[in-house]
Simulated scan of single mutants.
Amino acid sequence: MTGTADATRFLAMILRTLTTGIILLALARGAAAQDVDLSWRDLDGLTPAQIGDRALAGLDHEEIVAIEVNRAALTAQGEHRVLLHELPKRLGEVGCVRTVWDVTLLDAPDVSERHRQMALAGRRSAKRVAYSPDRPCLFADFVRVSGISPEQAMAGLAHLAEWRSQERALECGDTSGSDICTRPQAAISMARQTAPLVIGREGAEWWYALRPGTRLRLADDLTAPARLELRIPVPF
């Protein structure tokens, strides 16, 4: 009986903790809803800059010039993740940098379905960079930055551009089950032509995520062989 009673008390404690967390989350979301004035109907008539001013009210930000749905994010029913792209700026002679805001909106029930309101549930920002010596920043291909500064990321992208301009050795490792490494020309083409999605650094080498599960690694010494790694990507 004692064991059963202890288990019951433990379960009750867990339920109280979960209930408290749900209540706090609801309160936080309710408070956020007071900070933004957006409805589905409003969005159709606003420019990206106007939406940015409302969604980022109270935060320092540059003009928002583009908005896209964050399709890579996992969302619950009634939750919407959108990416707000600031106007990019030059970074050095050959680079560009911009801030991208990841904004979470929640459906908030209203008396009128046509004027359904949205509550602001979260806002966070991240830097993206582009190597663009011969194109305006507005048309550049931006790369997400992982654990390094924009200036470091630009150095890494310049390093990649230098490697791609030369004929260098490439090693290939594949645990994904594809046949890329058995086709040297296909591996070389992927390493040299695929635009990176993310850039980071580990030890004395740069890594570039070319697509989910695929990374190119370059040492600081460009005479060392580069390495293309293919793995089964994590599902989420």
Rank of each mutant, 00 (worst) to 15 (best):
C172P: 08
T19D: 11
G213V: 03
D37P: 09
Q34L: 14
A7R: 15
D141V: 15
A55K: 05
I148G: 08
A187E: 10
W40A: 08
T47R: 06
D44E: 13
L228C: 07
T175Q: 09
V111T: 09
L230K: 00
R168I: 14
A158L: 11
G203P: 08
A155N: 12
L74D: 10
D220V: 10
F142G: 00
V69C: 01
A130S: 05
G122P: 07
H85S: 12
V65M: 07
L46F: 03
P136T: 05
M154Q: 09
S178H: 11
R41M: 06
R144K: 10
H159C: 05
S165A: 11
C137K: 03
A55D: 03
A57T: 07
Q185H: 15
L170F: 04
A66T: 05
I22C: 09
L15C: 13
W206Y: 12
T175R: 05
A186W: 07
G200E: 08
R168T: 00
P212T: 01
G95T: 13
R215D: 12
Q193D: 10
W101L: 00
D220E: 14
V129N: 02
L157T: 12
W163S: 11
R71N: 13
L228Q: 02
T19L: 09
T47Q: 07
A186G: 01
E162T: 08
G177I: 12
T2F: 14
A169M: 06
D53G: 03
L74V: 15
T8A: 15
G58A: 10
E86D: 06
T20R: 15
V97M: 03
T2H: 14
D220H: 10
I67S: 06
R16Q: 10
Y131H: 15
E68Y: 13
